[in-house]
Simulated assay, not measured.
Amino acid sequence: MSTIIEHAPRLWEGLLVTLQLLVLGSVLTLVIAFTAGLARMSRQFLVRFPAAVFIEVFRGTSMIVQLFWFFFALPMLGIELPGFAVGVLVLALNEGAYAAEVVRGAIKSRPAGQTEACIALGIGPVTRMRRILIPQSIPAMLPAFGNVVVDLLKNTSLVSAVTVLDLTYQGQTIRAITGETTAVFTTLLIVYFVLSVLLSFLVKWSERHFAIDRVGKSNGARLLSLPGISRGGTT
């Protein structure tokens, strides 16, 4: 235990890097998930096909190999990125590919009657998706998104392979210096577990906050506020 206390500043620095990877990776994952998920639903082949290829490639290959390719192979093509940027990008691309299917599945699960009602009211596809279908699908997405974020947190440990000074990298360094394998890696297990639990609580809070009954009331008010729609029908 004295070893952990002595090297606590180094572990703290690694933890901050891990949290940065988590936050930036999660934000970029959401952007990629909605972009690829909605593109996957497009009726246009030139939009749908690249999205499908992206999803299958990043879901079907190893994340550690993806990290090595972006860090070691991409510079051979004239594009060189720092290790931290590679870590954030690969984490987001990989997790975003999984989350894109979450987005697509949640939106596809909406009752067909909602789309038919929007068409009957003259609501266009973009407005229909942005104001009605996506907001109502968010509660269904949250549990799966929570799993994706927890998985992203755990996968941040892989970026140590491309020289990113995250928590795992710092732990490995301390272990090499002190030889205290059990104490160091037990500490890492506890830290990652605590972070995962905190993320789970955050997701559960979000599920309650965006509960379907609350979202339904909000969307009902939005629908009535759209141009051409009143409580008595269309105008």
Rank of each mutant, 00 (worst) to 15 (best):
T35I: 08
T35L: 10
A36M: 14
G37D: 06
G37I: 02
A39E: 01
R40D: 09
R40Q: 15
S42N: 07
S42V: 02
Q44W: 12
F45M: 00
F49L: 12
F49K: 02
F49I: 01
P50A: 11
P50V: 05
V53C: 03
F54H: 11
F54N: 11
F58L: 08
R59M: 07
T61A: 08
S62Y: 13
I64T: 13
Q66H: 11
L67W: 12
W69G: 04
F70G: 05
F70I: 08
F70Y: 14
F70R: 03
P75V: 04
P75E: 03
P75M: 07
L77H: 12
G78E: 04
I79Y: 13
I79Q: 04
F84G: 02
F84Q: 02
F84R: 00
V88R: 06
L89Y: 01
V90W: 08
V90P: 04
L93S: 05
L93E: 05
N94Q: 10
A99L: 08
A100Y: 03
E101Q: 15
V103Q: 01
R104P: 02
G105Q: 04
A106V: 09
K108T: 09
R110G: 09
A112R: 12
E116S: 14
E116G: 10
A117G: 11
C118V: 00
A120V: 04
A120G: 15
I123A: 11
V126F: 13
V126M: 12
V126T: 15
V126L: 14
T127G: 12
T127F: 07
R128H: 08
R128D: 07
I138M: 05
A140M: 14
M141P: 12
M141Y: 11
L142T: 01
L142G: 03
A144L: 14
G146S: 11
G146H: 10
V148L: 02
V149P: 02
D151L: 06
L152F: 07
L152Q: 06
L153C: 07
N155R: 15
N155Q: 10
S157E: 09
S157W: 06
L158W: 08
V159N: 03
A161L: 13
V162R: 05
V162G: 00
T163P: 00
T163K: 06
D166T: 05
L167D: 01
T168A: 05
Q170N: 09
G171M: 04
Q172M: 11
Q172D: 13
T173S: 13
T173N: 13
R175Y: 14
I177R: 07
T178R: 05
E180P: 00
E180D: 15
E180M: 01
T181L: 04
A183Q: 14
